[in-house]
């Protein structure tokens, strides 16, 4: 019988420098293979965990539920898709949410971009304080901000409604815009602007034709983020909306207590498909443009 292989060491490539255990053993190959794929398997499972609810929302938008709640599958039906606004108040709440999201995005993007330039481009004494002020809203549970702003409005006897929601949304979107734009501005090459100035571009021209286009991806990212945050916000909105202003998330919340119409799933699916389509078209055109350059 052959002795165990380690008693007869094969000639080492570099004398005695290579620890034996570290050399890949042929028997370990399948283990390594499995290990390599373990990441992919686990990652795919995680992706499934993220996406299965969307699939459920899609499937159940074709359901014809028996009772008021759309949690159990009954029969296939396209009723909800042919009549998406058939539920009282739902489409009104949807358009209200869209209006608030557009205005909040506009406000937060303008204010946030200005502030981001200040923080990225200048050194000044209050910078640390300003950074802390911007970081805090992101590091605070929403319910705390929601309750405190609501208490203030209540005691100032401000009427709750569209305006209070808008104020709150601009407030919590600001920080995200600032972080997104600031990151972009800080990664921009200052030499490009110097070059523009050397080529006799005035400050306004330099800003409009060099700085702004360079910062645009950051501004767009911040704007998209704040649109999504505002459109989907529930906690802060619930504390600052008052009884008669119902945004789409608030409508869904109410529906969860009273009975969920299938149309909610239709809206959810439509939004999903629309947004993914926009992103994909954007990707494809970006690739196309990059290739044609």
């Amino acid at each position: 019988m052959a002795p165990p292989s380690d008693t007869v060491p094969p000639p080492p490539r570099t004398p005695s420098a290579v620890p034996r255990a570290r050399r890949p053993h042929p028997l370990l190959a399948p283990v390594r293979l499995l290990r390599r794929h373990a990441v992919v398997v686990a990652g795919t499972l995680a992706l499934a965990y993220l996406l299965v609810p969307n699939l459920v929302v899609l499937v159940f938008s074709f359901n014809k539920p028996a009772g008021r709640f759309n949690y159990e599958w009954r029969t296939f039906s396209t009723d909800a898709w042919t009549d998406p606004c058939g539920v009282a108040d739902m489409c009104g709440s949807l358009s209200l949410s869209l209006r608030i999201a557009v205005l909040a995005t506009l406000g937060a993007t303008v204010l946030g971009t200005l502030a981001a330039f200040a923080l990225a481009r200048y050194r000044f004494r209050a910078k640390g304080t300003a950074n802390a002020l911007i970081f805090l809203p992101m590091a605070m549970p929403e319910v705390v901000m929601a309750a405190s702003l609501g208490t203030l409005f209540l005691n100032m006897r401000v009427a709750f409604g569209f305006t209070t929601i808008l104020i709150a949304h601009v407030m919590f979107c600001l920080s995200f815009v600032i972080v997104a734009v600031k990151a972009r501005v800080m990664s921009m090459d200052p030499r490009l602007e110097e070059a523009a100035r050397d080529l006799y571009a005035g400050p306004v021209q330099t800003f409009l034709r060099v700085t702004l286009p360079l910062a645009a991806p950051g501004i767009a990212a911040g704007a998209l983020l704040s649109f999504a945050l505002s459109f989907d916000d529930f906690i802060i909105t619930q504390f600052n909306a008052g009884p008669s202003t119902v945004t789409f998330p608030m409508f869904v919340w109410g529906a969860a207590q009273r009975g969920t119409p299938v149309q909610v799933n239709v809206i959810g699916t439509a939004m999903f498909v629309l947004a993914v389509a926009i992103v994909l078209v954007g990707q494809v055109t970006a690739n196309h443009r990059r290739r044609s350059r």
Binding site: P53, N54, G268, Q283
Partner: peptide, 28 residues
Amino acid sequence: RNVLLVMVIAPFFTSFLIRTLAWKTILS
């Protein structure tokens, strides 16, 4: 890579309340 990143962000495009309600179905 980019496709997968979009897939990570994609759930955000559906209101999170609707998605949370979908868990009622999944875990029924």
